[in-house]
Amino acid sequence: MSQPGLIDLASVSAGYGRTTVLHDVTLSIDASAFTGIVGPSGAGKTTLLRVLLGLIKPSSGTRTTASGLRVAYVPQLETVDWKFPVTVFECVLMARTEHRFWPWPSAQERTAVAAVLERLGIADLADRHIRELSGGQQQRMFLARALLREPQVLLLDEPTSGVDINTRHDVLHLLGDLHADGMGIVLTTHDLNGMATHLPHLVCVNGHIIAEGSPRDVIVPRVLEETFGARLEVLEHLGMPIVVDTSHPMREPI
């Protein structure tokens, strides 16, 4: 066994009720992690994330965390109740869960929220209602809320679904910067070319872990077929693998 990480799963199985979604998963996340969890819909990506977060208890196996671990979680945009009456400022401030007698923010908290909004380029939106934001701005707001916790590990569920290409680019860049600053990053994605191949480390999941390693090691036809159950070809462009779905060739317009 290597050095214990910040979050360690040992032979974990987990699911909902009597349905087991994940089988025998062993995975270690440390501060140097920059890991993409890859797999098709229903493969257990979100379940794995929720097990890492401690939101689901393993039905067997163990989850151990470093003492005093600080994690932050960015949920999928689609799962959020966007009609909820909060402003961007109020939403970001939620991250400050430390006990404080008064409900309203302290001067120090105001400064901290302003700084993190500034960093993500949405400082001017602080007083807007969350519904008024674009998909990219909503994603930045949740990143701001996560960063305000100053986490050791940041977990994100499909951070680039429902955002445009520029936002995807920005999110990747920002995560890269955070990783360089020493923050562990784990995210789920079903976007192989736009996201997964840009990450240093991938975990391919479909009910169990099929392969783990650098994109060069796991973005290969054998692993992809086992993960996605479809024949996918891998090309190389400028040293980056590109996945091509050859099982459903594009049809000529009729």
Binding site: A72, Y73, L93, M94, T97
Partner: peptide, 19 residues
């Protein structure tokens, strides 16, 4: 106040944030 607001808005993230 904050725990109630956070758990009302987003119980999963609240739980993950230690509430």
């Amino acid at each position: 106040y904050r725990e109630l607001l956070f758990t009302t808005f987003d119980p999963d993230v609240a739980q993950a944030s230690g509430i």
